[in-house]
């Protein structure tokens, strides 16, 4: 059974999330503010944390920073719209994904499942996302067992996205991993390569979805 920690200042929101999560078999603990949330996290060692960005007192970003000093637990950000810069900041200091309030329960649960799945998947030299297969040993990709011809950059890019399959990856994170931050106009090159990848993968494989102002998400078709 997974343990989830909810850090949100809205009591009703906490109560509802508790009901939703408990109905899916989660064991739930909660905190109404950041400092308490950190204590709960240390005490209960949750498997996943749902963190509201708009906390009073110590804000969500600060909580996340402190949490990341000692914990690797998957964190899902709960945010309202129009906070793109804060969302990106949260993702870059170690949040795993976000949902935007108001969110559907299905979306929330799907995101939770995906972010809990991560980190344990890197045991083999092969990444599989739907019809797409990446062989990290030989740097080869295939789609429905048909080889996919990719340039080294495209392969590196697809690898980053596939490693985070179903999760958002910010533009900066991609840049860092693929180009090591060396590019004159990074986003332009990134767009070009994404474009090529989309064409090569076509409709058969997973889709590369753009989230404006944030980054990309590889979604299984």
């Amino acid at each position: 059974m997974s343990k989830a920690l909810i850090i949100d200042d809205e009591q009703q929101m906490r109560r509802l999330l508790r009901m939703v999560l408990e109905s899916r078999g989660y064991e739930v603990c909660e905190a109404a503010e950041g400092q308490l949330g950190l204590q709960e996290a240390a005490f209960h060692r949750p498997d996943v944390v749902l963190l509201d960005l708009g906390l009073p007192g110590m804000n969500g970003i600060e909580v996340l920073k402190r949490l990341r000093e000692w914990s690797d637990v998957p964190v899902l950000i709960l945010s309202v719209r129009d906070q793109e810069t804060i969302k990106v900041e949260a993702l870059e200091i170690g949040a795993d994904d976000y949902v935007t309030k108001p969110f559907g329960t299905a979306e929330l649960l799907a995101r939770l499942t995906v972010i809990q799945r991560r980190r344990f998947t890197r045991q083999s030299a092969e990444i599989v996302v739907g019809a797409l297969k990446l062989d990290l040993l030989h740097h080869e990709a295939s789609l429905d067992d048909a080889p996919l011809k990719l340039t080294p950059t495209e392969f590196a890019l697809l690898k980053v996205l596939a490693e985070h399959a179903g999760r958002i990856v910010t533009q900066n994170q991609i840049m860092k991993q693929v180009w090591a931050g060396q590019s004159s106009d990074p986003s332009e090159g990134l767009r070009v390569h994404i474009n090529h990848l989309r064409k090569k993968i076509g409709d058969a494989g997973p889709r590369i979805v753009n989230e404006p102002g944030i980054g990309y998400r590889l979604e299984e078709a």
Binding site: E10, M13, M19, K101, P102, F103, G104, T105
Partner: peptide, 18 residues
């Protein structure tokens, strides 16, 4: 203000899903 207005809407949405 945005937070105050959107929170109840989000709560209704989640409750309806339930």
């Amino acid at each position: 203000v945005a937070h105050e207005l959107k929170t109840p809407i989000a709560i209704i949405r989640t409750a309806l899903d339930g």
